[in-house]
Design a protein around this nucleic acid. Structure first.
Lengths: 189, 189
DNA sequence: GTCTATAAATTGATAGAC
DNA sequence: GTCTATCAATTTATAGAC
């Protein structure tokens, strides 16, 4: 426990704590305890518990959309852009794990949460577009539904937050295996 | 909202509500409102909010372990038993969606939750054994880590709870696509 | 099997001093 | 940037009548 926090360091601790017990399961008292400061001191940095959640979710979403922007302008095959999105998404998950984890657990209870869910859906739509194009270009098997494939793909990627821990340093093997299995299974037989 | 509940019907509503707002985000007041009865009436059926969660988690775990028992005695190839476990797990997810969803969101805050997490880990260990044997029998590519493969496999299966809704009746297509992609990607090139 | 009433504790948040 | 003190609301759970 340290002292003299700024907003960013408070956010780091809060995200970790929210993930440990769930957002609703974490009280401002729990947060204060984890920070080593009093409850009321938290309100110097942020106006409410919900605002804290909002900042954390925004950080995850910003990082994920940055991945799409990278590939959006590229003019290669859709299949290769899809592979790039998959690999970079695993990297974002590795780099921003607490924030992405939080994002994936949001249920839509409040306006803040529903806002984040809508941005996630937009991300899905754009990846589905990529899968559709890869099928049209003949690189992926055409007998599967693009929306279903996208859900399975990102279901697999997102499931990493349930067990992956960055400090083990095995991020590359995970991305390699995931891409080998999933894209291997999606390529035309 | 109906009246004259028994334990099972209370459990159905509770599981649905826990999934809607998260276990911690759901108060006994919310539950009472969803049931159309008073808060205190719930305590006639169950001794505490946590006991309600325990019953729901047990139902999911019982159904999942039943799948393993089905295949445990079979003497076919491990690859085929693995495919069977995958397909039946999707079916369990379809049949017991609210309970399995709840199970997959448990964080380990209480003894009840930690107990459920330990039983989940046991399930994982037994599936990992199946993957290992399938590799030894030469049916799956040998360059991948069995534990990692198991996590990706069930990460994909479990991610279904995030979007799959039984009433759409597309359960078979989901299982077929999932198995085609995942096992297709795992078979030796 | 359900109710009203209420207890006892915890919650998110504010006031105002240092 | 942090503190103590406090509030109003909400929470889980119980008592006891119908």
């Amino acid at each position: 426990m340290r002292r003299n926090y700024d907003l960013d360091s408070v956010l780091d601790v809060a995200a970790a704590e929210f993930n440990r017990r769930g957002y609703d399961g974490t009280s401002m008292g729990d947060l204060a305890h984890a920070l080593g400061i009093s409850k009321s001191s938290i309100y110097h940095h942020v106006s409410s518990k919900e605002a804290l959640l909002g900042l954390a979710l925004d950080r995850a979403l910003t990082a994920l959309f940055a991945v799409l922007e990278e590939t959006g302008s590229r003019h290669g095959r859709a299949r290769d852009r899809l592979e790039h999105v998959l690999r970079r998404s695993v990297e974002v998950l590795d780099a921003e794990l607490p924030f992405v984890t939080l994002l994936l657990r949001v249920r839509g209870n409040t306006h803040t949460e529903r806002d984040a869910l809508e941005r996630r859906r937009e991300f899905d739509r754009r990846v589905t577009g990529l899968v559709t194009r890869a099928i049209e270009e003949g690189d992926l098997r055409a007998d599967l539904d693009p929306a279903l494939v996208t859900r399975l793909l990102f279901g697999t990627v997102n499931s990493l937050v349930e067990w992956y821990r960055p400090d083990l340093g095995a991020g590359d093997e995970v991305a390699d295996t995931l891409i080998a299995v999933m894209l291997g299974g999606l390529e035309r037989p």
